[in-house]
Simulated scan of single mutants.
Amino acid sequence: MKNIYLTTGTINQVFDELEISFKGALNSNNNEFNLTLNSDLIKGNIDAIPFINGITSIQANITFSDDIMLSIESLSKSSILFAYCTEGYIKHSFGVSGHKSTLKKHFSGVVTGSQNVNTLLHFKKNIPVAFSLIKVETENSVNTINDSIISKLKQTFLNKKPNYSYQGIQNLKIAEKFIELNAITEQGMIGHIMKKEIIHSIVAMEIDDNTDNLIKMSRAIKRSALNQINELKKIPSFIKHYAVEAIYSKVIASKNRIIIK
């Protein structure tokens, strides 16, 4: 297993460090970053887009040739990190001795940190992994997100216990948004605005998914029951008639047995 340590800083500093650590080729244009990786240790690419409102989006599609423990310097107490896996899986822990949780395909996770404990990402060798990270800085940034969303972000994620970690249920709507994000081909300001709108909608979905979970679970159960009922309604009438006749015959037979006794 190889251990790699990354410090936090500006997006430029992070990608410069990634380029050195992974021996990649970095290209930055229009405030977007693309790191191409083709070494004996790692192959793939990592892309990032920083927005002026304190949000940074990172997309990674990578494969390691060895087991990797990637240690990332502890997040600031005002940072929120959303993660979404689209291929393979990732293991996460706070510190070496912390509990390991697994982020599977089509599952999202949320991580915050307010203590001096590094965030660790664990990768298995020869397993392709694709994932997206959205980092939101809720303080000391020029926020163009309206204040109500910032307030909801703080209330939903930063009023938790220190080093909060949560893994949500499968959310295919978020998956669709990431597909839309990766499909954008427009360059310059137009493409930047389109990407920003999608990232904002994903953040809003994460707030929604992490609010009133008991109510949402109840609604999900009801939706599942309604879906089953609707499927039953699609059964041809002759099958339903046959089922009713079969049940009726069983009831009559049971009554006859009781009378005979």
Rank of each mutant, 00 (worst) to 15 (best):
M1V: 15
L6E: 06
T10V: 05
I11S: 01
N12W: 11
L18C: 05
K23M: 12
N27M: 08
S28A: 08
S28W: 09
S28P: 01
N29V: 10
N34E: 11
L37V: 14
N38Q: 11
I42R: 03
G44V: 04
P50D: 07
P50N: 11
P50M: 12
I52Y: 15
N53V: 03
G54M: 06
S57A: 13
Q59S: 13
A60I: 12
I62N: 04
T63A: 02
F64Q: 02
D66E: 14
D67T: 15
D67H: 12
S78W: 06
S79C: 09
Y84D: 00
G88K: 05
S97C: 08
S97A: 14
G98Q: 05
G98I: 05
G98N: 05
H99S: 15
K100F: 08
K104Y: 12
K105C: 07
H106W: 11
H106N: 08
G109D: 04
G113S: 04
V117G: 01
N118P: 01
N118Y: 13
T119F: 10
N126Q: 10
N126D: 13
P128F: 03
S132L: 10
V136S: 02
E137G: 02
S141F: 11
T144W: 15
I145S: 10
I145D: 13
D147M: 07
K152S: 06
L153W: 09
K154Q: 09
T156S: 04
F157L: 06
L158Y: 02
G168P: 03
I169D: 05
Q170A: 13
K173E: 13
I174P: 00
L181K: 09
G188T: 03
I193D: 00
M194A: 11
K195F: 07
E197N: 13
I199D: 01
I202H: 00
I207N: 09
K216A: 07
K216L: 10
S218Q: 08
S218D: 06
I221T: 11
I221H: 03
R223P: 02
Q228L: 13
Q228C: 06
N230W: 08
K234A: 10
I239Y: 07
Y242V: 00
E245I: 11
I247N: 01
K250T: 12
I259V: 08
